[in-house]
Design a binder for these strands. Structure first.
Length: 195
DNA sequence: TAGGTGATCTTG
DNA sequence: AAGATCACCTAT
């Protein structure tokens, strides 16, 4: 019931945070509609060392600026001209780490989520993939920079998922990152566990 | 498996 | 400054 505090996001270990975010609940309350889902898939991006990060090599642009802020903010950007991607900024100011939320299991407001998705799918497929998470929970670039300790979008502690139900592996869609593409920085709940 | 669609970055 | 690239989804 209580929001995850900024101190959780401000730690200096984005991979550990990505792991710990599995099983937590992502909430949005936008335009009078409340929806939420249990986070089931995440990826860590390390701004300092990771060629897959938008902030790699100290890249500071209008887009990446929020990543350099203190942890606990939303980083939302447009991918492939179509899909909004929702990330959680972590670490302290100046260190541009982030966790991409790739899937959630809808919990509150499932019919609102289904209406936004305009698809009749089983619950566990409604927000599977980063572009569908944002569509289902109505997250868009107007929330870029939003404080995750506020009342529009926030996280709460949820289920404790043991390691044996989590698949760890390489991140998706970052072949351009060379060796870094092999890093085991993706965390995903076993699909059987959800049914 | 290709097409959609737009911001970001560039000898990829 | 045009052109490639890009943390993807859906339908054929």
């Amino acid at each position: 019931m209580s929001k995850i505090p900024p101190s959780f996001y401000q730690r200096d270990d984005v991979v550990q945070i990505a792991r710990e975010l599995i099983g937590t609940k992502l909430h949005t309350h936008l335009n009078g509609v409340a929806t939420s889902g249990i986070i089931t898939e995440t990826e860590a991006y390390d701004g300092r060392t990771d060629r897959a990060s938008h902030a790699y090599g100290g890249r500071r642009t209008k887009r990446t600026e929020v990543m350099y802020q203190s942890g606990g903010l939303a980083y939302v950007y447009l991918c492939y001209g179509i899909h909004e991607m929702f990330n959680i900024v972590t670490n302290r100011e100046g260190l541009a780490d982030a966790v991409l939320i790739r899937a959630v299991l809808p919990e509150m407001g499932i019919e609102d989520i289904r209406a936004r998705r305009k698809r009749n799918l089983p619950d566990h497929q409604l927000c599977e993939g980063p572009g569908t998470v944002t569509k289902g929970l109505a997250i868009d670039r107007t929330l870029d920079g939003a404080d995750l300790n506020g009342n529009s979008i926030w996280l709460e502690h949820g289920l404790c998922i043991p390691d044996k139900h989590i698949v760890v592996g390489p991140r998706v869609g970052i072949d351009y990152a060379g060796e870094d593409a092999k890093l085991p920085w993706r965390f995903k709940v076993n699909t059987d566990f959800l049914r």
